[in-house]
Design a protein around this nucleic acid. Structure first.
Length: 175
DNA sequence: TGCGCGATTCTC
DNA sequence: AGAATCGCGCAT
């Protein structure tokens, strides 16, 4: 069972919230399989979102955000860290969810290093054949009360309205 | 063709 | 608090 088209073809905030507790899964070229539940996400939704890469226009870098849902969008940040996003919404509407952390790794840059993701994995459909996909657990482990929504990280430049959007979702698993 | 800055992380 | 580090986006 994998999350497919219909899961991702929704608004980025909804997808970001529902991605919590889902298993980010990776198969490396040597066959090694890595998987961990997603614990933190951020939504970037639409042309108007001033924090989004797609705010101005479609470019070479952000083109994937304008494509079909359920694809990887990887870009280099601060010249050092790769960021993993997954595209949402219908083709033509730019939206994506930044995967900021899993149960075993905190921080979006550390996450891609752990899962061995770089620009080589950009623009791939999320499915086993791509070596990266996302699976639901048989039973949803996320209690509604264990999720908190906060403003997004590092987007102070986006102006008062967009800076304040509670589009960062953090799941604290029960002990 | 050049320049400022960032959806970060680690160290001092 | 500051450095590391480089591609993108906008100005020249």
């Amino acid at each position: 069972m994998i999350l497919a088209h219909s899961f991702f073809a929704r608004s980025a905030p909804k997808v970001a919230r529902d991605l919590l507790g889902k298993m980010l899964t990776r198969r490396l070229p040597d066959g090694t399989r890595i998987a961990a539940p997603i614990t933190e996400t951020e939504a970037y939704d639409g042309f108007d979102d001033r924090a989004s890469h797609a705010h101005r226009a479609k470019t070479t870098r952000n083109a994937v955000m304008f494509g079909p849902p359920g694809y990887t969008y990887l870009y280099l940040c601060y010249g050092i860290h790769w960021m993993l996003n997954v595209t949402t919404r219908e083709e033509g509407y730019p939206a994506a969810v930044l995967v900021r952390a899993t149960a075993v790794v905190s921080g979006p840059g550390r996450l891609t290093r752990y899962f061995m993701l770089t620009g080589e994995q950009n623009a791939l459909p999320l499915r086993p054949a791509s070596g990266i996909w996302i699976e639901p657990k048989s039973k949803d482990p996320v209690r509604p009360g264990s999720v908190r929504a906060t403003p997004r990280v590092g987007v102070d430049y986006a102006g008062p309205e967009w800076r304040a959007k509670p589009w960062r979702f953090v799941w604290t698993p029960d002990a």
